[in-house]
Each structure stands twice: as C-alpha cells, then as structure tokens.
Design a protein around this nucleic acid. Structure first.
Lengths: 227, 227
DNA sequence: CGCGGCCTTGAGAAATGTCAATGCGAGTGG
DNA sequence: CCACTCGCATTGACATTTCTCAAGGCCGCG
C-alpha cells in the first residue's frame, strides 16, 4: 500500500518476457473466457478491448491500449479474460507468464513491487475512464477522452504532437456511449471552436483551455495528467 | 493471480480490527486527501463516496457502500483518499491499520490472500459501476443500478426483500449521471411497468425479466450476480 | 473498377435538461 | 407537542441534446 510509483521498469519486463506475439490489424490477442496465463506488454501498436453480451452482436469498447500499456490484467479477478482484445494496427506484444513471474518474484522484491504498481495503474486507468464516462454531454466526454489520450501519448514520447487515431469513429462513439453521428457532429463543433485539429485520422490538441472549459464550464479544473 | 475467492473471512477481519468508528448520519469517515492508514469494514449502516472538483461545489457520487463492504481502498494507488466518505445513516466501521496488517501478513498467508481478494473485489466493483454507467438511457442505467444494489443486498442476507434506500434521489441521479427530475420520471415509468416497487425510501424488485429487458431490449442477457 | 464499410449531413422523433411552482417530510426550536 | 423551515421530490411546459433513419460521399481493399 505504498505510494504509487509512476515509473515502471520496462527493461526488466522485457527481460522477463518469454514470448512475443505479432498481431495483424484486426487480429485477436485473446478472447473473452480464454484462460489468462501471462501478463502482456504492448511493445508497439495499439489495441482495443471489447466486451460483448450473450446472444447478440451488441458489444462495448471497454478501453483503448497503446504502447507501453499492460494488457490482460482484467483477468486479475478470476483468471479468465472478460473482454476480447483486438489489434487496431499491426502490433507487437511481449508476454511474461505468471509462472516466470512468481519464480522471479520469490527472489526479487522489485518484481513484486512492479506487479503491485501495474495493478495500481490498471485501477487508476479504470477510474479515469469512469470519470470520462461520467460527463453528461457528448462534447464533454469527447474533450475528456482527447485530453486523456493525448496525455497518455505524451507519456510515451509524443509530447502534444499531431497523432494518428488508429481506432474508427465508431469505436470512439461506442467507447463514449454515444452514436457515430453524434461523434461526427461533436467533432465538427470542436474543430470549429479551434480547440482541436482533427482531419481524418490526424489529431492534435490546439487549445487545452477550451477543452477544459467544455468539460466543466464553470471551473478551471484541469484534467490533464502529466502533459 | 489466483481464482477470485468470493468469500471473505469477516471474522478474521474483525479480530484484526484495532479501532471502531461510530458515525452519525451525514458524518465523514474520511475526507479527500486525508492520509490512508487503515482498511475499513462497514460493520453496519451505509455510506457514499464522493469526489469533488477544485474550486466549485460540483461533485460526483462515486459509489454507495453497504454492510460488509470494504471502504477506503481507493487510497491503494497513492496512499491518500481520492474521495470523501459520508455516512448515509448511523453507521459502525471497523478499522485494521496497515501496520497491523503487515505484521500479521508476515506469518499468515491467509491475511495476504485476503488482501488480494479485497483488492480484486474492489476492482470488480469498479468494473461493475462502469458498466452501469455505460448504458445509454436513464431507465437502463436505473435498472442496472437496482439489479446491482439488490444483488449486493442479497449477498448480505436480504434476499430480494423489500429494502430501504438510504441515499437521496439526488444522490442516485448524481451517481447515474442524470438529473433529479429524470430519476423521478424514470421511477414513475418503471413502477408503472410493474418491474419495481418504489415508494418513498422503500424499494423492491417485482419483475427481474422486465428490468433486464429494459437494460438490453434485444437480448436475454442477465446482469444478476448471485441473486 | 466495384464493393462494402465508414463518415458526413439533414430532418424529424425521442430523451433529457432547465426552469418554475408546488407538495411533502424530517429535523429544529419554541 | 406544534409550527416552521429547509431541502428534497414531483410535476408541467418548454429548450436542448441526442437518437433514428435515410441519403450520399469517401476510402481502402479485393
């Protein structure tokens, strides 16, 4: 229950890694109800996790995952995945089996500590997405979503550059709990205010102030984490 | 990373407990940014956790907590609470300091395992609330919320009985991300279908089928956990 | 080159928010 | 114990937002 370490030793994780997956765009890293046997690190590329309901084609985008994200921790609770994980582009995934992990854990406190840090980060991320969803208006959700994604991109070296959104418009809509047409319109509106640049897949934040105002008009509260 | 134990040894927790708080309705168990020094178990009563934004009176109900819930684990990430915890009725809370916890942990694997189970349950709960929020329509959110709360009440012995909702209408509205008036109207509509009984604070589910249909009209998917 | 899926745009329907008036009830002080 | 008060709950009318359905354009892929 120690203070959150924001830094994770990726070199250590990579050294532990005993397996590498190469995924094509649209490929599945794992499927719902698969048994979870390892922790996975996104070495390059990006994925979405999706949970689906029985008996229909209805599904929900649970989250998007980018380089340096750990993926598959949703199995922490019961050792089976609760989502499908699908590559948004060609991606490379490194895996550390739980076996290896516990083997090393017994002689390296650093490994134990890292696992705790990973769990904590996983939870913090869940918390963040929950707060994004809690915004009432579609534009607010979108603004919160963009701040979140840009801030995560920044943490892997894309410091407020123009980035490429690999997911479809529809994926974003689904994630935010609105319809595709609403995203289209909110996008148009946000671009017009000058808050963002968003043409096709290309995206950039131009004016953070405006975005924050849209999220919470009456305050100056700032959702940016380590931008 | 073992299979989720659904059972928690409450006797053990109670024995470890080295402190008891008596809270009056409306009283604070802890406040945002307080340092977290213990794990707390709700012995009786119920609470809400609320997070607030800087500089305004805006706030969001993060979750409701009932008897046998562990509270305060949101400090897991950085050892400070991220919410205010406020009693919805007179409540009794048992606390186990982290000190005591780690003292016992070193000679009892059961204690370590329990802590993991608690964390896992905490996350599962976060996940559940996220999915409740992900329903688009207000009635669907409300239905999902009720199924969730009744199922949690069932797990502490109130098997589909009429229960008392201790939180205000407004709290529910805030939690679900809609306005109070919308709750009033959705309530009226749900009562009229015969799905629920809800008069003043008194609540009961009359027809689970209808509720599930409202959540997901086209499927028979069932959100009930251990009802 | 043509197909299919995604994106955009428009118009009208449905859901939710806003504002205002009123009712109700728990808690307070006399 | 009663009257008062304040905050919560309900209801109606209207504004705003989002959904739905439909049409057309764009783009990547076979």
């Amino acid at each position: 229950m120690s203070k959150l370490k924001t830094h994770i030793n990726f070199d250590l994780l990579n050294n532990l890694s005993d397996n590498t997956f190469q995924l094509k765009k649209g490929g599945y890293l794992y499927r719902k109800a698969d048994a979870s046997t390892c922790i996975m690190l996104i070495h390059s590329g990006s994925l979405k996790t999706v949970y689906s309901f029985e008996g229909t084609k209805e599904h929900r985008v649970d989250d998007f995952h980018i380089k340096n994200d750990i993926i598959g921790l949703d199995a922490m609770m019961d050792s089976y995945y609760s989502t499908d994980a699908i590559a948004l582009e060609d991606s490379i995934i490194k895996a550390v089996s739980y076996e290896k992990f516990s083997l090393c854990a017994s002689r390296s406190p650093e490994v134990v500590e890292m696992l705790d840090t990973l769990k904590a980060r996983f939870m913090a991320r869940k918390e963040e997405t929950r707060r994004i969803l809690n915004n009432l208006r579609a534009e607010s959700r979108m603004a919160a979503f963009f701040i979140s994604i840009i801030s995560r991109m920044a943490s892997i070296g894309y410091s407020n550059q123009e980035i490429q959104l690999k997911m479809t418009n529809k994926d974003i809509a689904n994630f935010l709990g609105v319809k595709g047409e609403t995203i289209s319109r909110a996008k148009k509106s946000l671009v017009k205010t000058g808050a963002i640049l968003w043409d096709k897949k290309n995206f950039k934040i131009l004016n953070l102030e405006i975005l924050n105002k849209i999220i919470s008009p009456k305050t100056s509260h700032n959702l940016m984490f380590g931008f």
